[in-house]
Write a protein that binds this DNA or RNA. Structure first.
Lengths: 123, 123
DNA sequence: GTCGTTGCAAAGCGTTTGCAGCCTA
DNA sequence: TAGGCTGCAAACGCTTTGCAACGAC
């Protein structure tokens, strides 16, 4: 069913090697050295199947193309650098969200996205 | 410079009439009755200029097409109902965000999106 | 009459899909 | 060898742009 190919190995390794969420194009760039003729279509197909498999998680940010990171790293949020466009994982979580919900509404989940400059871009 | 045309009046009125953020296609649907030959290109162009003008604000939600709402209603966040898909404005704001930022990073802004069911869908 | 504005169609851009050939199991 | 996997190119959906006609001032 799930075959072990050079391309999938390269894509998985690219995602394991990088600690931050990657966009499809970034995955292609990271994986191409290990799988030279890799195409963007294969990246999209592989990312989709890895998400369905539960190995990957899609990270959706407002106004941004989806990015992907390894699943199972626990509840966290994201920091989006306005200078370089990279997305970083943020530990910790805000509180008092329940109090913001209007009467009669049921709160099930939440997203927090921080914007600014990463340490590399501040310099 | 800024001319007063039937199309712009129709688009502005559609956005004033509706209390929630509207997607471009929703704006077209709302404004077409008042401006019959209105095209989607004009909607995009007008929304863009209304944003630049400061009259409108783009509302970007993760994985969603951009929506637009009137600017100047103050800092707030959004509640996205998973049942009906509508987006509601939420007053109030979380705290302690600065403490979540990694060392060396500069925090400039943030987004909070709440997910759940609105009062109408809970019933 | 000038020139900003509009509608249409074509072009972009990121993502998905069809298909013939390739390669894993 | 069978059938899943891949690369290429075409198809897609949404947004932007080029252009000639239109209409506000």
């Amino acid at each position: 069913m799930e075959r072990d190919t050079l391309q999938r190995r390269a894509i998985r390794e690219a995602l394991e090697r990088t600690a931050r969420p990657l966009a499809p194009q970034e995955v292609l760039d990271e994986a191409t050295p290990a799988a030279p003729r890799l195409g963007i279509a294969t990246v999209y197909r592989t990312l989709k199947s890895l998400v369905e498999e539960g190995w990957l998680k899609a990270v959706e940010l407002p106004g941004q193309p989806p990015r992907y990171e390894r699943a199972g790293i626990g509840h966290h949020h994201h920091f989006h650098c306005r200078a370089c466009g990279k997305v970083f994982d943020i530990d910790g979580c805000v509180g008092k969200l329940q109090g913001m919900v209007p009467k009669g509404f049921v709160l099930e989940d939440h997203d927090v996205v921080l914007y600014g400059r990463c340490d590399a871009c501040v310099k």
